[in-house]
Design a protein around this nucleic acid. Sequence first.
DNA 1: CGTCTTTGACCTGCGC
DNA 2: GCGCAGGTCAAAGACG
Length: 341
Amino acid sequence: MLFLLPLNWGLQKQEVQSNFIELGPKLPVKEETGALVEELNRVSAENKKLTEMLTVLCENYNALRNHIMEYISKNPENIDNNSNITESRKRKAESTTNNTENANNNIITNNDANIVVNGPSESSSSDEAGSCKKPREEHIKSKISRVYFRTEANDTSLIVKDGYQWRKYGQKVTRDNPSPRAYFKCSFAPSCPVKKKVQRSVEDQSILVATYDGEHNHPHPSKMENSSSSHSPSSRCVATTALGSVPCSTSVSTSGPTTITLDLTKPTSSSKKTTTQLVEEESRNPNPNPNPNPMTRAPEFQKFLIEQMATSLTKDPSFKAALAAAISGKFLQSNVTDHKW
DNA sequence: CGTCTTTGACCTGCGC
DNA sequence: GCGCAGGTCAAAGACG
């Protein structure tokens, strides 16, 4: 998976902003208009900064993923031990084209398995090992994506707030994972064929692995909500608007299952400065970095930035829900896109 | 009372 | 054909 953020990320937000400014002078109260515009500018600036921080987070994720891949390649015995768990179910594992990622799909993304090109699309995952009822052709056509949600360690629920409404229709304890797997159907079923499986990761019980099968044929509930109450100044609206152009329009249909990791844990940082403040401070640096790439910044700053970003994103439950909804909804609804990130 | 969740039973496909 | 395992169904209970 590539975390390539499109360069035009934020364009949508800016367009909205400019339109809003144009409408401003038409309002009867100029002061109120000015205050609103000022507030909008402030929010837009914060959105922009959050965008940058998300870029940093994604790049760090890639770096971490590379480290994991290196570790995998250097420690094949661990992979073998992991693979033995599902040794009795080699139906699809034997057709696997990438064993290293398959054996560790609970830790990292395994979406490099290519549905179209490499044949068995979900050979890497035990999640889909039993979904053999459908004809192979139909299975390949179905859009499968995987989202990782980090939750509280003591949170035993299998509920993933992605913005859609789901109806649980089953729960099963699978052989390769002591944690039960919950089966959900979209509440719009049978008109909406989307199904979702949620199970905790073997490696990290605090990580919920949600596997989406199919795509929604109805608008995202959060979008409907926002469209009907777009005047609301809540952070949820801000988040959804800003993330409406999140590059989570990841290629799901053309390059196999897509995986996104969302950290939904509560903030633990005791830092006093906010992310915005930190960025602002850095922007005031008398010796500005000519390289806009955040990865060139000091490692301490990067670490702090990530912590603060997670803090900011998880401070508000509604923000978390909106973030998860926007991201998951975006890539689930994305039919045609050539971008991978 | 309607909706949702739980959970045991059943169905289906695959390997042997 | 049998056993295994994942996926689904549907009745019963919980809940607002």
